[in-house]
Design a protein around this nucleic acid. Structure first.
Lengths: 219, 219
DNA sequence: GACTCTATCTCGGTA
DNA sequence: TACCGAGGTAGAGTC
């Protein structure tokens, strides 16, 4: 990893045009060739960047970075303050717990948390337009398609609508209804879901994690 | 900006739990207090981070970073290889050109570029499920809802469909038709838009920028 | 390679 | 502040 602190200007021409006026910034060049230009604030996102793979040419007073799509990043160096390089080696990578997949797994183990009498038919039920998070049957035997989100946004409701439209093409299933499950459901998403005739359920991740499927069956 | 290259482990507890095993990484602490831990690859996104505002406490062999929501980032330093600090100063910020907002503004100023005889009723027309980019009336006085995208994808067509569905609930407007405008419309999006009965218009950003509203009126 | 979907998304605008 | 939409979304997984 190469770290250059320099007074510079930067221009990006690609999916849009962007320009950075003269200022002192950190230029980070990683071992895989990706380049990021950071100011001294503003979260982790760099002001400007070019991902790998790309070709970096050092013209002395300016660098040009070009990617295979023809997008270019031009860094004009007006004054290099420091330049260092470091060997970091490979990284073992990040281990995560608590993402949507886990929420889905917990709900698959305890569909009663969504609705009394619900039993799982299949997780990641395949359709031509992608897998449905959970497919269940309710107490009356009707098929229920369930979309699981951490944050219930409008996009998720549309996703559920597409899946249900798809399932309706499969007449062997009979009538199918939809349930939209999330830890938090946004107001606009709730409006749309209800307009579409979907039930909306908010669930708590920690409660779910604390539940045992057998405990749930006591109700 | 403080730059520390160190062999470290990192733990995040917050919206999810995440753990980084021991490895050499770059730890970036910006002037606003935000912290980012970078490996030597993987584009610009850090492996782990904590945005400002937060409180960083240096316990010598480990740092704890806590934000107001109670999320914590713990960095255990096993071996500090280098540590530097730099004064970068304020950044004038990024200047962008060619984003959707510019396209929308240009089209609002020259709706004739979409269709002869179109006059603007309102930009960002409010509905319960979000604002419609442009609402116009055509030469015949019919209401036209217009969705503007830089890249015309299926999502944008569905967005337009939702808006029109919503507008139909407002009987005072009469029949409403939809126009999908983008610099590039993907084939799938075009098929869907036409199936929904929407007109599809591709516009050129540079042409629009060159137009004057009065020039357009010459036609 | 194309498509789909998630994200500690980030970031900006607005009510 | 919370909500909502755009993004050079990036990144991962699947087909």
């Amino acid at each position: 990893m190469r770290l250059v602190v320099a007074r510079c200007t930067v221009d990006y021409r690609g999916r849009l045009d962007a320009h950075l006026p003269e200022a002192v910034r950190l230029i980070m060049v990683k071992a895989d060739g990706c380049v990021a230009i950071h100011a001294d604030g503003g979260a982790y996102k760099p002001l400007n960047w070019m991902n790998a793979p790309n070709t970096l040419v050092d013209h002395g007073d300016h660098w040009t970075v070009v990617n295979p799509k023809g997008e270019t990043l031009t860094i004009t160096l007006l004054e290099v303050l420091t330049e260092t390089a470091h060997e970091l080696g490979d990284d073992p990578g990040l281990q995560k717990d608590g993402v949507e997949a886990h929420l889905q797994a917990l709900l698959a183990a305890s569909p009663q948390a969504i609705e009394d009498g619900l039993t799982l038919v299949r997780r990641e039920y395949p359709t031509a337009i992608g897998p449905i998070d959970l497919v269940c049957r309710d107490a009356a035997g009707q098929v229920v398609a369930i979309e699981v989100k951490r944050r219930g946004d409008i996009d998720g409701v549309e996703q559920l609508a597409r899946y249900i439209e798809r399932l309706h093409l499969d007449s062997s299933l009979g009538a199918v209804r939809g349930v939209f499950v999330a830890q938090v459901v946004k107001p606009q998403a709730r409006v749309l879901a209800e307009a579409r005739g979907f039930r909306v359920v908010e669930v708590d991740y920690d409660d779910l994690r604390g539940m045992r499927p057998d405990e749930l069956r006591l109700f």
